[in-house]
Design a protein around this nucleic acid. Structure first.
Lengths: 139, 139
DNA sequence: TATTTAACTTGCAAATAACAAGTAAAATAG
DNA sequence: CTATTTTACTTGTTATTTGCAAGTTAAATA
C-alpha cells in the first residue's frame, strides 16, 4: 500500500500546497495570471468573479510573500504595479492544467475551447511548456 | 498568445475546480483518502490537522454532494460509515501529485519520502495509476 | 493647477469557522 | 437483557474572515 506515515511525511506537501491552492481567490488570481493575461490590480478586480478590493489586496500580498508573484512598478505608468508569476508561480502551471482537465472531464457545465482540450489530451507537457514560455516572454 | 476570452471559456474549469480544490479542508480530506488510507469519520478527525467536527461533517457532505466521495454503511460495524473516492474523486489523483511535486520542489520544509519523490519524477503516470489501482482495490 | 486614474485602505455588517459540549444509534461487556 | 462504550454526527456560542461601500493617496494627464 502506498501510505503516508506521520514520520515519513513530516513536512506534508499537501498541507503546504493547500496554503496556496486551498484558497478559492488565490486559484482565480493564478488563473487570471496564467490564462487571461492579467497584470494590473484592476485586471483582477474586474475579472468578473466579483472579488472585493480588500480581499484582492490581501491575496496579492500573500502570494507575493510566498514568492509566487512579484509586484513591480509599471515603467510606463508609475502609479501602476505589474503583477507577474515568479518561477515558483510558473511551477503551478502543470497543476492548473490537471485541474482544467479534471473539470473538463467531470463537470458538464465546463466548456474548454476544443483546441485547448485537444492539446491537453495529446501533449500536456508541451502545452505546459508553451504556456510557461509565453508567460516568461511577456514578463 | 494562449488566452482565455470570456466567450470561449464560459463554464470556466478553474472556477469549477476551485469549488473543491480551492478549499483547505477539502484538500486535506482528499489527501487522507488518497495517501493515508482514511475511511472513517474519526480517521479524518484525528488526522492531526485539527479539523472541527462540524466543519468535517460539512465538507464530507459537500464532497458527497459533488460526487467526489461516497458514504456507505460499514458492513462490519453498522454505526460506522465508510467514506471512499468515486471515479470522479480518483480523477483528482494526478492533480494532487502535481501539487506534491510542486511543494517538494519549492518548499524547503516539505519532506517527501525519497522513493515517492523518485517515482514522481521518473514515472508520474505509472505512480498515479498505481495509487488509483490500490484505492480501487481497497474500496 | 485641477481633474482623473490606479492602487489600495478603512469601517462595518454578514457569513463562516473554531471550540466545547451534547445527542443518537448501534455494538460490546457484564 | 441491561449498562456501558463506540462512532458519527449536531447544537450553541464565540472568534475570525469575508463582502460591501466608501474613502485615501500618489502619480499622470488635461
Amino acid at each position: 500500500m502506498t501510505k503516508k506515515t506521520s514520520t515519513e511525511w513530516h513536512g506534508c506537501p499537501i498541507r503546504y500546497g493547500a496554503s496556496i491552492f486551498g484558497d478559492n481567490w488565490c486559484l482565480l488570481i493564478l488563473r487570471d495570471l496564467m490564462f487571461k493575461s492579467a497584470r494590473h490590480y484592476a485586471d483582477f478586480l474586474n475579472a468578473g468573479e466579483g472579488i472585493a478590493s480588500n480581499i484582492l489586496a490581501a491575496r496579492l500580498e500573500r502570494l507575493e510573500a510566498e514568492g509566487i508573484i512579484t509586484k513591480l512598478r509599471d515603467p510606463d505608468h508609475g502609479v501602476r504595479r505589474i503583477y507577474a508569476l515568479t518561477d515558483k508561480g510558473l511551477g503551478l502551471v502543470p497543476a492548473m492544467l490537471e485541474i482544467i482537465d479534471w473539470s473538463e472531464t467531470w463537470d458538464t457545465q465546463t466548456e474548454v475551447p476544443t483546441e485547448f482540450a485537444e492539446a491537453l489530451r495529446t501533449d500536456r507537457r508541451a502545452l505546459a511548456e508553451k504556456i510557461t514560455a509565453e508567460l516568461i516572454a511577456a514578463r
